[in-house]
Structures are given as structure tokens and as C-alpha cells.
Design a protein around this nucleic acid. Structure first.
Lengths: 150, 150
DNA sequence: TCAATTGGTTTCATCATGAAACCACTCAAA
DNA sequence: TTTGAGTGGTTTCATGATGAAACCAATTGA
């Protein structure tokens, strides 16, 4: 799948990308979050080669991001649904979504909004905040080795 | 660089991945956020082939994520520094970091924490919240076409 | 029972990647 | 001011990943 692997590297970003870092995986997860479940649905939505889709689905299942289930409509086919681990990628997708909206769209292009279903109002943009609630930018943070558990 | 392109597709996630979706780009941005600036620094940190690094740096500069500057130490070399657009990827990296921490580390493995520099305290995890502040999960949201500007 | 649909796998050409060699420019010291 | 090391690349080439198409087995509907 890839030539270099980051397995064993200490950086959590690198480890995430090791699993999710190829181009299609996140798009499959996005589609799964939109409710797609069937092989054919993914293939049609993404327009990707079936052999590659097959590879990626296996990869995502192997890593516990999707799981295979019997079809919900009673047919004998199977479906691919997100696990808890997969659903936890939601903030990653939202962050990518917000960045793309801000930096990859022209002035008057049609856009979508993400709404809170309960109220029907737009969600707040993702923000990094300090323990006391202050809004943080890159330059306000640093990384430190965590003291070992005891 | 890639065989398929998502240019012109309406999904902002797809557009983001079209720019940032290859494996190395986000790692370069991560390193840039950690303060790396020089070709050699990136190459040493990432252990990647120099020709590929060269390609990626050009790509990131072309997309306005990095910019080339004269070296800050007065030498004749140049440096690659994040633009505003590049720094805006911070939430994406933080989201990937949190997911990786949660799902790609073993029990007792040494970890890092992200601290708010001002207070020296760990930052809050990224959260998606409704307009009224309620914590939202995937299933609490939906996408809708934005009404056109007027 | 037959034809269409679904969910793949196989095959093969092509593109991207990565390792190594090579090269030009800069810098510091002799 | 030459020289040698270091920096920042580019070129070349072998190899691996990708994608299109053909193929195939199982399921489903008519």
C-alpha cells in the first residue's frame, strides 16, 4: 500500500497517517459518515476502481475502523459500517471540511453548512481551547513528554 | 502526483485532500509547525527521499501553504515557513494527533501532551459544539445546502 | 429458469515513489 | 584565494502502487 511505514514512530500524527493517510481511506470514512454502507454505493459515490476500493475496505476493516455486518435490508449481502474507532474520526473530517471551505472555495461558490439536528442551527467552528477556555493558536502551545502513569 | 483529482468536486473534504491528501504533505506541515524551516531539517526529520521532498515543498509553496523566505540566520540559503493558510491546518493536525493518541498507542507507551504555553496546562480536547454549546457527535449533525448570499 | 445486479478478483499497462549518484552553490578556514 | 565540507537540490533508474477493463461467482427479481 505504501512504501514507507511509520509504525513504531512516537508521533501520533504519523501513526494516524500510517493508517488513514492514503487518499481514499478518509473519503470512504466520510461517505460512511454520510450513511453509505454498501460496496456499490461507495464505488458509485467515489468513482474509484473496484479493486482499490476492495483493498481499502479490507484495510479499514483490518484496522477496526469499519466492520462487516449482514445487510440491514434482509438481503444476503453485507454492509460496511463505522465502528466506534471510526466514528471518532469525526473531528478530523470536520477540521478538514472547515479548512477546505475556507481555503479551497471561490467567492460565490455554492456551499454546505453543518447543522445541529436538534436545533437546526449551524455548529460552532472547531476550536482549540485552554483549560480555562482561552482560544489557542499554534504559537500558544507546546508539546511535552507526559510523565509516566503510576 | 496522483492519478485522480477531485478538483471541481463540491465536497470540501475532497478538495482539502486534493491538496493535502498525500502522505508526506501533512507530515511536512507538522514539522513546520514544530519549527523546522530548512530543506535539510525536513529531510533529516522525515527520512524521506530528497527528490520527493523537493516535489512536495514545491507543491506546498504552489498552493500557498508554505512560502520561501531568506534564511533567518543571515546566510544565503532559503527557508520554508508556514503561511496563514498553512497555520490554519493546525486543528486538522490536532484532531489527527488526538485520534492517534487514542487509537494507535498501547497501554503504557510513552506519550506527549500538548500544553497551553501561558499556563503550562494541557489543552482541552477538540470538540464539536452546537450554537448553544451542547457537545455534538456525528449522529447529532446533518449537512444542508447553504442559502446563497445576497 | 433466466437475466440482471451485486460484489468482488485477476490481469496488465502506467504512473509515482524511493534510493543512489551526481552537481552547483555557499561558507569557513587555511 | 584556494580548498574542502556542507547545503540544497536534480537526474536516473528500478520497483511498487494505482486504475481500467475483463472476468467471475453468488444473489435477486421477473
Amino acid at each position: 500500500m505504501r512504501r514507507t511505514s511509520m509504525e513504531g514512530v512516537a508521533c501520533p500524527v504519523a501513526r494516524s497517517l500510517d493508517v488513514m493517510g492514503d487518499w481514499w481511506s478518509l473519503l470512504i470514512v466520510r461517505d460512511a459518515m454520510l450513511g453509505l454502507r454498501r460496496f456499490g454505493e461507495f464505488q458509485k459515490s467515489l468513482g474509484m476502481a473496484k479493486n482499490i476500493l476492495s483493498q481499502r475496505l479490507k484495510h479499514l476493516v483490518a484496522h477496526g475502523i469499519l466492520e462487516v455486518q449482514p445487510a440491514s435490508d434482509g438481503s444476503a449481502w453485507q454492509e460496511y459500517v463505522l465502528t466506534q474507532k471510526g466514528r471518532r474520526l469525526f473531528p478530523v473530517l470536520v477540521a478538514l471540511r472547515e479548512w477546505g471551505m475556507e481555503h479551497c472555495f471561490e467567492e460565490g461558490e455554492p456551499r454546505t453548512v453543518m447543522l445541529d439536528t436538534a436545533q437546526g442551527l449551524p455548529v460552532k467552528p472547531l476550536e482549540l481551547r485552554a483549560a480555562d477556555g482561552r482560544l489557542l493558536e499554534l504559537q500558544d502551545t507546546r508539546l511535552e513528554q507526559e510523565p509516566p502513569e503510576r
